[in-house]
C-alpha cells in the first residue's frame, strides 16, 4: 500500500505539473481539494480521474456520492485503486479457474 500511495503521488505531480512539489510534500491524509491542503480544483479532480483510468483501468462512476470521499486524500485514492485492482485480479482468477 505504501508503494501504491507513492505511485499515486508521482502520478498526480506529473499529471498536474505541480512545480516544486515532491511526494514528501503530500502527506498521505492531506486534503487534496482544500486550500489548507494541496489546493487542487474540480478540473484537477477530472484530470486525476483520467490519469487513474489510464494507469489502473479504474472505473469511476460520474455521479457516485462516494467520489468526494474517494478523492479526499492519497490514502483514500490508494484504497480505491487497491480495492479495484484486487477485484479485477479475483475476476481473472475465477475466469482462469473456469
Amino acid at each position: 500500500m505504501e508503494q501504491l500511495r507513492l505511485e499515486i503521488k508521482h502520478l498526480i505531480i506529473n499529471t498536474l505539473a505541480l512545480e516544486d512539489t515532491t511526494p514528501d510534500d503530500i502527506a498521505d491524509d492531506m486534503a487534496l481539494f482544500d486550500a489548507t491542503g494541496l489546493g487542487l480544483d474540480s478540473i484537477d479532480a477530472l484530470e486525476i480521474g483520467v490519469a487513474l483510468r489510464k494507469k489502473y483501468h479504474l472505473t469511476i462512476e460520474a455521479n457516485n456520492a462516494d467520489n468526494r470521499e474517494h478523492f479526499y486524500s492519497i490514502s483514500n485514492l490508494a484504497k480505491l485503486v487497491d480495492a479495484q485492482l484486487k477485484a479485477a485480479q479475483l475476476k481473472d482468477t475465477q475466469l482462469n479457474n473456469q
Binding site: 498536474l16 478540473i43 484537477d44 477530472l46 484530470e47 483520467v50 483510468r53 489510464k54
Partner: peptide, 9 residues
C-alpha cells in the same frame, strides 16, 4: 484518447 480536462477547459 481521452482529452485532458485541463487542456480542454
Amino acid at each position: 484518447e481521452e482529452l485532458s480536462p485541463t487542456v480542454f477547459s
